[in-house]
Design a protein around this nucleic acid. Sequence first.
DNA 1: GCATAAATTGAGCACTGTTCAATAAAAGAA
DNA 2: TTCTTTTATTGAACAGTGCTCAATTTATGC
Lengths: 199, 199
Amino acid sequence: MGRRSDHSRKELEALILVEGHRHMAEVGFARFSAREVAKRVGYVVGTLYNVFGSYDRLIAAINTQTFDLWTEWLEERLASDPPDRIAALVAGYFSFAQAHANLWMAIYDHRMVEDMPIPDEMAERRGMLTEVVVREVAAVLPQEAQPLAPRLARSLVATVHGHCTFALNGSFALLGETDPLAMATARVKESLAAAGARF
Amino acid sequence: MGRRSDHSRKELEALILVEGHRHMAEVGFARFSAREVAKRVGYVVGTLYNVFGSYDRLIAAINTQTFDLWTEWLEERLASDPPDRIAALVAGYFSFAQAHANLWMAIYDHRMVEDMPIPDEMAERRGMLTEVVVREVAAVLPQEAQPLAPRLARSLVATVHGHCTFALNGSFALLGETDPLAMATARVKESLAAAGARF
DNA sequence: GCATAAATTGAGCACTGTTCAATAAAAGAA
DNA sequence: TTCTTTTATTGAACAGTGCTCAATTTATGC
């Protein structure tokens, strides 16, 4: 039913985002339904299109929120001052993905169309995760290797991402690997050591 | 129209697979349609279900065929006796994914349901790709490190996979990385060197 | 209080995967 | 050969999907 006075545009946007995020966590990307989200917030699917413009932008907004949570998750673990910050970072990457498998996978299930790339504001928020890694990588690299930090950090994120993907989608299990986290951590440390890192 | 005499069961299965593979290459996982494949082979969608049992098994069959092609692709590049076989392997992984982006991504877009895992025959064919990598990794490792080869190889596949994913989905471009292949190759070599490899 | 602007709806379109009775075709038995 | 049984194939139906848009309802500015 029409409830225009119930929520301002911003409130409605937030409402849809919260419920959409919940729905994504419950059923995953493949079974996600804009109609179902609309039903849950008490509006009709056309309203979602009115607010978000397209299905893609709704999904993008949900996934960007997942990035926010993920960055926060990492920062929390680092804030507890773990003895091995690099290991904590890798473990944090894994544990978030495992704890929120549907949300995490949705990030990579969704592909933005070529002609309509992700909005700047969202791209920036997503980039914060990498920023955290760059900072921690820089912290263990020697002075002369500091300029390498950004590229190396991105590459190490990719390394961990690959291991995390195989852990969650069953590829590792199928091949008999039982400790993907240990493997990922080992690879990261080898590359950091090669760059002269000390920990 | 009914064309029962036109194709035997095996022929029909092959026909659907070929056309399904072509369709997947053209439109990708998200826009793949069993009905469209049926139309193209001149049968009706029910027949696909009769032959493959379910949508999931059809996709699994298509993706397994992609694995076959991919393994073949790598072996071809190694057969030309490149000076750096490890680099050739990483480059082959990347070039296949880039040359057949829709097919390659479909492998990871598709998630087998928990209660119905991938059939043994398909799992074995998919494993051949890793076998190639295990063989090449073993070839550069010293005698005493040979037992490490299988686990290390799987882990290096994951490393390359992560880089390849970020290269294709635009994550690297968004973060300013312009040479994902070089990054992946560097990471692989660092880990092999750490295990005592010589090349 | 009224005209204008904006948000919300509901119905419709063209699809999708999936199921299943009815039908057509092939194989086997007499 | 003819008749029966088994098997393959169809077509229609079901419950969904994303997406669009005229019509309606609601809020705002004059």
